[in-house]
Amino acid sequence: MEMTTGNEMMITVSGVTKNFGAFRALDGLSLNVKKGSVYGLVGPNGAGKTTFIKALMGIYKADSGEMTLDGKPIFENEEVKSRMIYVCDDLFYYPTYTIEQTAKMYADIYPNWSNELFEKLHDIYKIDLKRKVIRLSKGMQKQVAFWLGISAQPDVMILDEPIDGLDPVMRRNTWRLVLNEVAERGMTVLISSHNLRELEDVCDHVGIMFGGKMVIEKSLDDVKGNIHKIQIAFAKEGSDEKLALFTSNLELLHESRMGSVASLIVKGDMEDIKNIAAQYSPVVFDIIPLTLEEVFIYELGGMGYEFENILI
């Protein structure tokens, strides 16, 4: 049947800290992923996304903090781990194993494993079962990871930069298969990626990490609904004063001018902004939502992570 996210939490992370020597990679990180949600974890390079995912999967041991799946602690917990599938960028396979042998190993480990699904998916991932996985190309190894991962029918999929390396057709097919599990079984997905255009389609929630912390965690609609690009111009007489008055009423993230037209990046409710603008009778007024990529750039810009002047 058709599922939607309720309010039940699948993954709960609170106050997780991880140090590497003197370097603090995770600094009291908290995060919440609802059951049946597709959660996009984004952030600049070095924000701690992969460290967090490795801590979540028990590859690193966190120095402090709590991480639970469905209310149960994850670390070294076999029962909980058997409900999770992890697909990352540097996949590991046993050197001598064929796809078939690896599938048998998965069937032993994951209680929900479905042979029927594995065979069905062979129509999509058309790779000879007798081939050794490590002999396959990087992209094909990734296909195998999804093929096996989806067949394991996990409750949660943790994906770290997963889709890169797949060609556009396999990328779309793989997303369709993953979203089918989300729609049909209420599978939960946590995905870290820099492909924000893609995340915009597949995610319902996003978390933006910076400096080992979670800085914004909201539904995608709320993230995008609270920040806008405005183009505004006033009649010549007193236009600068009017613009100054208008912007003084707003939470302004960015401003640029081109002739008499000002382009503003503004936080706040769209209707409120429209009403404020109306008070100053602009001659040009246009307000459009930002793309997730723009939200990322301007939100992090506000925290000091900005474009440098490239024209040296």
């Binding site: 058709e2 939607t4 996210t5 949600s37 369709r176 989300v182 597949v202």
Partner: peptide, 14 residues
């Protein structure tokens, strides 16, 4: 159905 459209368009079912 929600599922059909989500899978067809590769868009989040929610």
């Amino acid at each position: 159905s929600v599922r059909e459209l989500a899978v067809n368009m590769a868009i989040n079912p929610n």
